[in-house]
């Protein structure tokens, strides 16, 4: 009855991201093999754990950016918010006299509020996420600079706090690694195993379609931007614990790294398709690149350049694929019409 339907179905795309993930895994392996030859001490367990230790902050931001981009949105403010949360934490602990766990909790609250500000502007006023978070990027960084008066640098945190960024469990496992992995698993479950994750995809594919299906679009978009804010605060805490100081410029440019990792990981910038696993691979690819170039005595800027080039290449490839499959669907529709139309009566 409907042979064209079968013709279009040839390439099963029920998990279209799987392909890009495999590709990325290949890139990661090739990259590692190259650096294993060129880099000194690259292929050691210690270095692998060091890469893990250094990529937790970007990882947190990127993993939580995944559901944001799945809804077809974007959050450019996470890097600035990291900076703001870092100095807020420092201020609360040093000048506010709070114990660091209390200050940390308050910092998470601040992150949530900042994410809530984005969410309200996006859902209530129906403003494009791009411009809202571009504005809040400036606002958050500006507030961080205002709080520190541009020069203040919070240091001297207690060892019990620094341990979360510099310590090792059993002398081997970086202390922040379990935290990063827990968030990764949590968000992975949220995106892939819950009803919320499913509706986020529906919103990303078609916000109107989701609304017609009874999905509370505004509420769910609010959730992802709130999560993004909290994740930035968490990343700020890990950052401060790792470097031992909180300055206003903390996390500058992190939003770009996070977005790049997500897009490299196969999540469509137009929303709908993507996976947290892909994002994790994206983070790993970028982290290995940076670390490997460093151990191979290459300039650090090369990593930045390659990051930008990677991002553009992946996007252009995605668009080319999209156009190609759109053409295939169009030609498929043509077949449908010829197959099912009856002869014209005159």
């Amino acid at each position: 009855m409907n042979p064209p339907a079968l013709q279009i179905r040839t390439g099963s795309r029920s998990r279209p991201w799987l392909r890009s993930e495999l590709l990325l895994l290949g890139v990661l392996i090739v990259e590692s093999l190259v650096f294993a030859r060129t880099g000194t001490h690259f292929a050691t367990v210690g270095n692998a754990l060091e890469i893990l230790r250094l990529s937790v902050e970007i990882g947190l931001l990127a993993v939580v950016m995944t559901p944001v981009i799945l809804t077809g949105g974007i959050d450019l403010s996470v890097g600035s918010l990291l900076g703001l949360c870092a100095v807020c934490f420092g201020k609360l602990w040093r000048d506010g006299g709070l114990a660091w766990p209390v200050a940390a909790l308050a910092t998470l609250g601040i992150g949530g509020m900042a994410g809530g500000l984005n969410a309200v502007l996006i859902t209530r006023l129906r403003l494009p996420p791009l411009i809202v978070t571009l504005g809040s990027l400036s606002l958050f960084r500006g507030l961080a600079e205002a709080i520190t008066r541009g020069v203040d640098n919070f240091t001297g945190f207690p060892p019990s706090f620094l341990m979360w960024g510099q310590g090792y469990f059993g002398g081997v496992i970086p202390a922040q690694a379990p935290l990063g992995i827990a968030v990764m698993i949590g968000v992975g479950l949220l995106v892939h195993a819950t009803s919320l994750g499913r509706s986020l995809r529906a919103i990303g594919f078609s916000p109107e379609g989701a609304r017609y299906a009874g999905v509370p679009v505004g509420r769910q978009i609010t959730v992802v931007y709130l999560l993004s804010g909290v994740a930035a605060a968490l990343a700020a805490l890990v950052y401060v614990a790792r470097v031992g100081q909180a300055k206003a410029d903390a996390g500058t440019g992190y939003e770009l790294l996070a977005i790049t990792a997500v897009v490299l990981g196969g999540t469509s910038i137009f929303g709908g398709t993507g996976s947290v696993f892909g994002t994790v691979l994206g983070v790993a690819t970028l982290a290995v690149l940076r670390n490997g170039l460093q151990l191979s005595d290459q300039p650090g800027e090369l990593a930045g350049i390659l990051t930008g080039v990677f991002l553009l290449t992946v996007l252009a490839g995605e668009m080319a694929f999209k156009k190609y499959s759109a053409r295939r669907v169009a030609s498929g529709m043509l077949q449908t019409s010829t197959a099912s139309s009856k002869p014209a009566s005159s």
């Binding site: 995809r201 529906a202 594919f205 109107e208 379609g209 989701a210």
Partner: peptide, 12 residues
């Protein structure tokens, strides 16, 4: 545009 979400599987 409204009735189904074309990119999503039939079951979803």
């Amino acid at each position: 545009r409204h009735g189904v979400i074309l990119e999503m599987p039939v079951a979803h």
